[in-house]
């Protein structure tokens, strides 16, 4: 896969279709794959890496790249294409400045899960015939992908690319029997007190590093309200539990109806807070109240929270927490 991608990058740079390539490169550790821009074939040759640790969604980086001018090649996994479309719908990126190569995806490995298996000194990962081979300084280990796959990949909503200029690998389908709302349903079944306890337990770990906001493809504001002293809610660090809760709740409201459920917020959280559950609750509610809607599926679709229809649900009918 990596070689096929590199070859396409060389070709497209060579024939002048694109000026730069947005992909992944190795970070401090072998499992630490970081988004990177490559300016020429040499940089691609030396730096470009693609393997099952390349989990980062590259769509958001295009906001900045579109402002830098020229045409850029980006590699997008199916779930990343939804974010791409959403950014297009919000005019944050320019379609004619981007060349999208869709890449087939079978799910990405969660290195934390690998480490939990007692595997140390990781130096790489390869997938072949449905088995991961994790190479370590102590030798190779074979693992079943299902055992170490990221939660968001186990609950994958779509293996279909909703946008691309060309495709490497096969085109997949939208996953019809996706179980991504199971945990939300469990939370809904809790009493308000139990639910409050659950969220306090999670959110009390927040260190306000802002990683969730910074990675989120829906959070591309010129100036975030949390950084704007005139907004009335700006803050650097949460002063108390109320502010700890409110930062995440306000953020969930801000991305409601726009979040594609790419799961980057939870992936990057150093405290392992399941932030995606807040967003999924909104997605589930939007589906329930306004009919099924997947943000990013169609960039020309009118978002349910951004339009008004005569038969829209009345606020009183939506219900709320029962005492």
């Amino acid at each position: 896969m990596q070689e096929m991608m590199k070859n396409r990058a060389y070709a497209l740079l060579e024939n002048g279709t694109v000026d730069r390539v947005l992909g992944w490169t190795r970070g401090e550790f072998a499992y630490d794959m970081t988004p990177a821009v490559f300016r020429n074939a040499d940089e691609v040759k030396n730096g470009f890496v693609y393997n099952d640790f390349c989990a980062a969604n590259l769509s958001k980086y295009l906001v900045k790249e579109c402002r830098a001018g020229g045409k850029i090649l980006v590699f997008l996994k199916p779930c990343d294409t939804y974010s791409f479309n959403q950014l297009l719908a919000e005019h944050r990126i320019k379609r004619d400045m981007i060349y999208v190569v869709g890449i087939e995806c079978f799910g990405k490995a969660d290195v934390e899960k690998i480490k939990e298996m007692g595997i140390e000194g990781i130096t790489g990962i390869t997938a072949k015939d449905g088995i991961y081979t994790v190479s370590t300084i102590y030798g190779d280990k074979a693992i079943k992908p299902a055992d170490v796959m990221a939660e968001r990949c186990l609950a994958c909503k779509s293996k279909k690319h909703v946008v691309y200029d060309e495709l490497i690998g096969n085109e997949g389908e939208v996953v019809e029997d996706c179980n991504r709302f199971d945990m939300v349903a469990k939370l809904e079944a809790m009493t308000p007190d139990e639910r409050y306890e659950f969220w306090r337990g999670e959110l009390s770990r927040c260190i306000r590093c802002n990683a969730c906001r910074n990675i989120c493809p829906a959070c591309t504001c010129e100036q975030c309200i949390f950084d704007n002293p005139n907004s009335g809610v700006s803050q650097k660090a949460a002063v108390n539990s109320f502010e700890e809760n409110m930062f995440h709740i306000i953020r969930a409201f801000h991305v409601a109806g726009r979040c594609t459920d790419c799961g980057e917020c939870s992936r990057v959280c150093p405290q392992n807070i399941p932030l995606h559950l807040l967003n999924r609750k909104f997605i589930k509610d939007v589906n329930t109240f306004y009919g099924d809607y997947q943000a990013g599926e169609d960039p020309t679709a009118k978002p349910p929270l951004g339009k008004y229809e005569k038969n829209d649900i009345e606020p009183g009918e939506a219900g709320g927490a029962k005492e």
Binding site: E90, H91, C221, E222, G306, K307
Partner: peptide, 21 residues
């Protein structure tokens, strides 16, 4: 304008068509 993202959210909800980009 310093804060505007140009995302068209406002344009979509405006019942009077008062917003242009």
């Amino acid at each position: 304008e310093m804060l505007c993202n140009g995302c068209s959210s406002c344009e979509k909800v405006c019942p009077y068509g008062a917003i242009t980009y």
